[in-house]
Amino acid sequence: MRILITTQKVDKDDDVLGFFHNWIIKLAPHFSEVHVIALSVGKHDLPKNVHVYSLGKRRGDSGYLKTLRYIVRFYKYLFMLSGKYDAVFSHMNPEYIILAGWYWRLSDKKVFLWYNHKKGGLRLRFASLFSHKIFYTSPSAFTSRYKKSEKMPVGVDTELCKDIEVKREKNSLLSLGRISPVKNVEVIIEALSLLNKEGISFTSYIYGDPTDKDLSYYKEVLQGSENLTEEGALTFNKGVPYEKTPRIYSAYEIFINATPSGSFDKTILEAINCGMIPVICNEAFGKDFPKELLFTEGDSKDLKNKLEKLFNKNAEEKKELQKYLREHILKEHSLDDLILLLSDEIRS
């Protein structure tokens, strides 16, 4: 069977979307041909049966004229690839299905959409009309309401994301990922400020970059954390290539994620597999997630209290907590499990 994949970016060095490069590698053996159309293409090293086509987007590109060019290129590739694929898998971008769903339906192609955000909207509703099946990971995702939807594993690359033996800094905090309003980085900053005001000893590190549209938010975050950075309690770092994240996860003790319920942020599971203890507000992880590690969404004081209690645990208590997380939260979310289910669904 042959497949067409549409996605936002193919770039193994991208700090946010680099993981999808490994998805393509894992999917390739399940199909005779894999064609990938991406809005942007960077560094990649893929199997011989994978062919990648770029719509030409570069950072900073904007405007209706450039969007029109992307659309024209997309239709050019569709014409060029006519008859060379049997099914379509669109990852997180319903726009592709809006543009070509009618054509794929008329051409008798099965259409599969992966969409895992809490918010939907007209574009998602329209894309769902042309989709045969929709995949999601979070029970709070907008797409979970559809009868044609199916819950899937998150897809943690356990071969890549594993504990590396480096010295782990005690009472060290890490936040890693795109810096944007939906990530509620300001809540994390406020909690760190409360800890610092009480004289509690810790170090914290934020790794990530904003998109062009979130630059003003990023500046606000930097301004709001000036006291922390000046006192050496907080360090900002640029986003790093996906393949280098395991070494970062392995160097720190506690992972903070303030993303609200609705998405199943895989960085949390990656951090767990690299030996970290996460403190989160996302209830999508279910009843098995320890309440002592779950803070109230948007409540920086509650986050501060959860972190302080975690600081007070001894090494053995932290080790037992991390072991529980690996055994009860991480299970059934490996990339291999996801690819097997995904490929079976597409080929069925």
Rank of each mutant, 00 (worst) to 15 (best):
S54G: 11
Y85G: 08
P260G: 12
G63A: 13
S62I: 01
G56E: 10
H132L: 02
I346R: 05
G262A: 11
G177M: 03
N49Q: 13
L228D: 03
L342Q: 07
S90K: 03
K84I: 00
G120T: 03
F264K: 14
T67A: 15
V221G: 10
G60H: 03
P246D: 11
R105F: 04
P246V: 02
R168S: 08
T7P: 10
K244P: 01
D299S: 10
H328Q: 15
S90E: 03
F112Y: 05
F264H: 10
P210D: 11
S193N: 06
R69G: 15
S250A: 01
L65D: 14
A38W: 03
D212S: 06
M152Q: 12
I254P: 09
S40N: 08
D86R: 05
E316W: 06
K162W: 07
P210A: 14
E283I: 03
P290E: 15
V36E: 12
L99H: 00
F112E: 03
P153H: 11
L176S: 03
Y207I: 01
E320N: 14
D163S: 03
E226M: 07
H30I: 04
L294V: 12
S140G: 15
N227Y: 05
Q8V: 02
S149L: 04
N171W: 07
K84E: 14
K244L: 13
